[in-house]
């Protein structure tokens, strides 16, 4: 059970979902490396690190106490996560890299990348609303 089992996804196919969960090449069970687990860790790690950095780290200065700085932070990190997720997913597209009974294409991977992007953005916003309360300089960012 992981986060991607529970959330609404951007209509990429179930076959990609099974591949990302680590379905073995013979199609028997999910015994291969799970991309989902990696992406979940990346989403959580990058989001928390970037928001901590913004409110308590290097960006915790009056110079960055503007909404554009915050927006930049909240967009760049999900973008990196999205690209990474897409790359990890698309590496399984060539035949031989995934179970031959699964049928998915690059567009599915793109939708997965977008899903990761969207959820990282949401997580960053949610974290911001909590962390900002304890920040010295960015207490009023984004609102």
């Amino acid at each position: 059970m992981n986060i991607f089992d529970s959330i609404i996804r951007f209509s990429y196919s179930r076959d990609l979902l099974e591949h990302l969960k680590g379905l073995s090449l013979n199609g028997e069970a999910c015994t291969s490396q799970s991309v989902y687990q990696m992406v979940t860790l990346i989403v959580l790690g990058f989001s928390i690190a970037s928001i901590l950095n913004y409110y308590f780290g290097l960006f915790n200065r009056p110079l960055f106490s503007r909404i554009f700085s915050w927006l930049f932070n909240v967009v760049v990190v999900p973008f990196i996560v999205g690209i990474t997720s897409y790359s990890l997913a698309v590496s399984g597209v060539p035949s031989g890299a995934h179970c031959s009974y699964l049928h998915f294409f690059k567009t599915d991977c793109l939708l997965f990348g977008l899903t990761a992007f969207a959820y990282t953005t949401v997580l960053c916003i949610v974290l911001s609303t909590t962390f900002k309360l304890f920040s010295v300089n960015n207490k009023k960012v984004p609102f």
């Binding site: 992981n2 609404i8 959580l44």
Partner: peptide
């Protein structure tokens, strides 16, 4: 983020 809910998309 790590526990499930009823939003399974088949």
């Amino acid at each position: 983020c790590t526990t499930g809910n009823a939003f399974n998309q088949n």
